[in-house]
């Protein structure tokens, strides 16, 4: 009984669709709906666009000035290629105070355990290329496991401070979060290598 009813309504609907006038009206009405929704989105986008850009910029700036307080940052145009797999370097900033180069910050994305990449900024000092700090801009690692490794001011990220090229590999991975911690290690290694190229190159020139 039920089945018969529904099949009847389906055939009725098909009949409606086959009238040209109906098709045009359907197309027109859907277009109106889409147009109204698009208009609404355009308005909201105009209202929020600037704030979103400011928010994203602010996060990066806060991370940079957290690594090298009271320094001036210059973005470098030519980024040295990274050799480590899974890492894409977004930008490199040199940090300087009163014309003296203090170090550089490497902003990069590294693939961790989550499908979304970890967005990091790593500060490296000009002196012997020691790591100043690791700042996490965004990540979606597993809460309590990978996310605990990346915790702001957490024990793990603190271990990297003052390490250099030779001592990075001394840092153990965190059990249960091998992939996340190895991602951080290879990111830091990449950053130190890039710093050596960027800062070393500048000294020679």
């Amino acid at each position: 009984m039920m089945k018969k009813d529904s099949s009847e309504t389906v055939s009725e609907r098909v009949k409606i669709v086959f009238s040209v006038k109906e098709i045009l009206s359907v197309v027109l009405k859907l277009t109106v709906v889409v147009a109204v929704v698009s208009m609404m989105l355009a308005v909201v986008n105009t209202l929020t666009r600037d704030r979103i850009a400011v928010n994203e910029r602010k996060k990066t700036e806060e991370a940079l000035s957290g690594l090298f307080p009271a320094s001036e940052f210059d973005e470098i145009d030519s980024i040295p290629a990274s050799t480590e797999p899974g890492i894409s370097v977004e930008s490199v900033y040199t940090a300087g105070k009163n014309g003296v180069q203090e170090g550089c910050c490497v902003e990069l994305y590294v693939s961790g355990f989550s499908t979304e990449e970890i967005h990091l900024i790593i500060g490296v000092a000009a002196e012997e290329y020691t790591v100043v700090g690791v700042e996490v801009i965004s990540s979606s690692e597993t809460p309590g496991v990978g996310a605990a490794v990346l915790a702001k001011n957490g024990d793990y990220l603190k271990k990297f401070e003052n390490t250099s090229k030779l001592t990075i590999s001394d840092i153990d991975t965190v059990s249960g979060a091998t992939i996340t911690s190895e991602a951080v290690v290879s990111s830091v290694r990449t950053a130190v290598n890039i710093a050596a190229v960027v800062l070393g190159g500048d000294n020679n020139g």
Partner: peptide, 10 residues
């Protein structure tokens, strides 16, 4: 206003 046959799309 929304026609039956395209309601889900709308």
């Amino acid at each position: 206003f929304i026609p039956q046959n395209i309601r889900i799309a709308a």
